[in-house]
């Protein structure tokens, strides 16, 4: 084996091992599901929380999750009906077993509630604590100004108005989330 390859191969092996263990974990949840359908019933939600550039949770057992579905907040408890929910800008709250909670702001995405697990695929997710209220206010004002400018100049700017409207929606949701958490 060439010497230069070793570090890269090591990384690959680690990755492979991790993937393997992930597969094993999936198999484990599969077994758990088999157990659940047999009537035992689990009291935990297996949560996967992904966004494009990071993994927030993988195969983590939590007691419940609340996601901002487009029709309203949706609480996911164990043995939830299989659902596909589109998310709107809002807060995902994860309740751990030790009654601690974790809150993330998500911009949009989808939540898949499978019989054996729950996958949250968000386009962007940040911890609520990491949001800066002043920056939010500033960005909100900016988007509102853009929206006003675009909508006053007529129908030609419909696309720009729509983009500004999205910005306003997201920042308003963000503002609400931050102010309610303090």
């Amino acid at each position: 084996m060439q010497r230069w390859l070793r570090p890269a191969l090591n990384v690959t092996r680690q990755v492979a091992r991790r993937q393997w263990s992930a597969d094993a974990a999936t198999a484990a949840t599969e077994e758990a599901r088999a157990g659940a359908t047999a009537g035992e019933g689990t009291n935990q939600v297996t949560l996967n929380f992904f966004c494009p550039h990071m993994v927030i949770a993988r195969n983590r057992s939590v007691s419940s999750v609340i996601v901002p579905a487009s029709s309203g907040l949706m609480g996911i408890l164990p043995n939830h009906v299989p659902t596909v929910a589109q998310m709107r800008p809002g807060v995902v709250t994860i309740y751990h077993e030790d009654s601690k909670e974790e809150r993330y702001f998500v911009s949009s995405g989808f939540t898949f509630v499978h019989p054996d697990r729950t996958d949250i695929c968000a386009v962007e997710a940040v911890r609520l604590e990491d949001l800066d209220p002043e920056e939010i206010n500033k960005a909100l004002a900016e988007c509102e100004a853009k929206l006003a400018a675009a909508s006053s100049s007529g129908a030609t700017d419909a696309q720009r108005a729509a983009i500004a409207q999205i910005g306003v929606d997201v920042y308003l949701a963000m503002q609400g989330a931050v102010s309610s958490s303090r």
């Binding site: 570090p7 890269a8 990384v11 690959t12 990755v15 991790r18 992930a22 996967n48 992904f50 966004c51 494009p52 550039h53 990071m54 993994v55 993988r58 989808f110 898949f112 996958d119 695929c121």
Partner: peptide, 17 residues
């Protein structure tokens, strides 16, 4: 090394969809 680390973080995202 950089791209592999990034890919490692984002593989599950595409995989779950």
């Amino acid at each position: 090394r950089g791209t592999q680390a990034r890919q490692d973080m984002s593989r599950p995202f595409a995989a779950s969809v």
